[in-house]
Nucleic acid binder design. Structure first.
Length: 213
DNA sequence: GGGGAGATCTACT
DNA sequence: GTAGATCTCCCCG
C-alpha cells in the first residue's frame, strides 16, 4: 500500500454499522480510522476492539438501560461516536445495536498508517509501538477528544474507511472490567492475531477466520 | 453541594 | 507492582 493511500479513503456507509455488535467489533478490525484536524490528518488501522452489548452486559455503561447524559448517544442510531473521559484520558466507541438498543464497540488500539510525525508531536514516547497501543493513547495521538461526541463516522473530520482484511482474529476476555460479575469473562475482546500494536498480550480463547466483504 | 467511581497511562521502585 | 494524576458526571443527602 502506498504511503498516501489514506487520502483516497472514503468513509464506510451507514449500513455497515447495522451489523450485530459482536460482528461489527470483528468487521472493524483492519479498517482505517481517520481524523482530520487543523494540525493535519492522522490515520490508523484498527487492530483491537471490545464489544459492549447493551442492557444485559454488566460491563457496559448502558447496563440495565442506564440512560444518562454520558450514555445518551448509545441510545441513538448506529455509527455515531461515543467518547467519554476516563481519568485523564478520552476513550472512543462506535455506537451499534440500532436506535433504542444501547450497544457499542470500544476501539482499543490502532496501527499508525498516516500522520505519524504529528502523532509523535502529540505523544512523547521513545518506542513507536507505544504511540497508539491503548485506548487512551490512540485518542491523544490522533487528536480525538470529547468534542467528537456524537459525530457520525460516515463523514469527515472523523470517519472510518475500508482497510485491510486481517489474516486471523483472536478473541479473549475484555480488559479492565473486573467488577462486572460474570460479564468479565465474556470473550468479547477481538484483536488481529500477533499484531504488535495490540494493547496487551493475552491468551486467546478462540481464533476466528475473518469474514470477507 | 460533595464524595466516589471509572472500559487508563506513566513513572518510579 | 503500585501510586498518583485529574475529569465528568451521578447520586445521595
Amino acid at each position: 500500500m502506498k504511503k498516501d493511500d489514506f487520502l483516497e479513503a472514503r468513509p464506510l456507509k451507514s449500513d455497515f454499522y447495522s451489523l450485530p455488535t459482536l460482528e461489527l467489533a470483528q468487521a472493524l478490525l483492519g479498517c482505517l480510522l481517520v481524523k482530520q484536524t487543523s494540525e493535519g490528518t492522522t490515520a490508523g488501522y484498527i487492530v483491537e476492539t471490545e464489544a459492549y452489548v447493551g442492557p444485559e452486559d454488566k460491563a457496559a455503561h448502558s447496563y440495565n438501560n442506564r440512560r444518562t447524559k454520558r450514555t445518551e448517544i448509545m441510545f441513538h442510531e448506529s455509527g455515531l461516536a461515543y467518547t467519554y473521559q476516563m481519568h485523564t484520558h478520552c476513550l472512543i466507541n462506535v455506537v451499534s445495536g440500532g436506535a433504542g438498543n444501547p450497544e457499542a464497540v470500544l476501539i482499543r488500539a490502532v496501527e499508525p498508517a498516516a500522520g505519524i510525525e504529528l502523532m509523535l508531536e502529540r505523544r512523547q514516547v521513545k518506542q513507536r509501538v507505544a504511540l497508539t497501543n491503548g485506548p487512551g493513547k490512540l485518542t491523544k495521538a490522533m487528536g480525538i477528544s470529547m468534542t467528537d461526541y456524537g459525530h457520525p463516522f460516515t463523514e469527515p473530520p472523523l470517519f472510518i474507511a475500508p482497510g485491510l482484511l486481517p489474516a486471523s482474529i483472536s478473541a479473549g476476555k475484555r480488559i479492565g472490567i473486573e467488577n462486572s460479575g460474570e460479564a468479565k469473562d465474556y470473550p468479547w475482546r477481538f484483536w488481529i492475531t500477533d499484531n504488535p500494536f495490540v494493547s496487551r498480550h493475552q491468551q486467546a480463547l478462540s481464533v476466528i477466520e475473518p469474514k470477507k466483504g
